[in-house]
Design a protein around this nucleic acid. Structure first.
Lengths: 126, 126
DNA sequence: GACACAGTACGAACTAAGTCGAACTTAGCA
DNA sequence: TGCTAAGTTCGACTTAGTTCGTACTGTGTC
């Protein structure tokens, strides 16, 4: 065989900085529900958000604005809240900004392999 | 370590019998969409159906009645159709009966690991 | 204090999805 | 021929979710 594909890099996580604000209310790891997580990920905009966090993170967490999504702010609030309440992302308040990151370890523990599918997803056909 | 957990049994597939009727209309493997599949699996009843097919199949495919679901027939038709149109199950008409089975190979090819999550799912909490 | 800014909360309008009864279709069988 | 059973189709209703405008909250800055 000419070249072997690497095992599964998929995505990486950045180390958690010290002295972070408390996360906003979210479900505990053991309360994560597969049907809820799948439901919240069955939306292209939210898949885009999670995928971008997994593959293109430049920092530990990111504000809504960083994603460059062309939707009214109230719509974005709605989707980021849905992701957090399903347990897919964690949000922290930094002064004015509210930053999100994916709960990689928690999701891998409960639903191993799910995030790799999100990372491999592409918006358009295919 | 006392005992190593087996790699990933998860579920098995039964061989396809010869001379089956043509499958009902369904998306091709390359047309399977992650967001659609996740959406159709974000329902406890449909997760129950797919999980039961994966873990408790007694034959290659099964009728709606086999599942023992306590819902009106028109509701069941709706859910089985949703699963088929999302590409999760394949349905064939045998005389009066319409039997379903999971498209294991197709789903594993497109979304590896997804079915293992469904197989590991449990209806109530956790 | 006044302002700009990031984001939320609320609510209304709209859309998609679930639920299910009733009527229909079709195969098998007596 | 007519019954029965498996399942569909249709339509009405209900529920849940999306979208987004407007008003609001809280922080930092001048």
């Amino acid at each position: 065989m000419p070249s072997t594909t690497p095992p599964a890099p998929a995505f990486r996580t950045l180390p958690e900085p010290a002295g972070l604000p408390e996360p906003l209310p979210e479900p505990a790891v053991e309360d994560l529900r597969l049907e809820t997580v799948l439901g919240v990920l069955s939306d292209p905009l939210r898949l885009t958000i999670v995928r971008k966090l997994l593959l293109e993170s430049e920092a530990f967490d990111h504000t809504c604005g960083w994603f460059g999504l062309d939707r009214p702010k109230s719509s974005l609030t709605h989707h980021f809240k849905a992701l957090r309440e399903a347990g897919v992302t964690r949000q922290r308040q930094y002064g004015l900004e509210r930053r999100s990151h994916v709960r990689v370890a928690d999701l891998e523990a409960r639903f191993p392999g799910l995030l790799a599918l999100v990372a491999a997803w592409t918006p358009d056909s295919n």
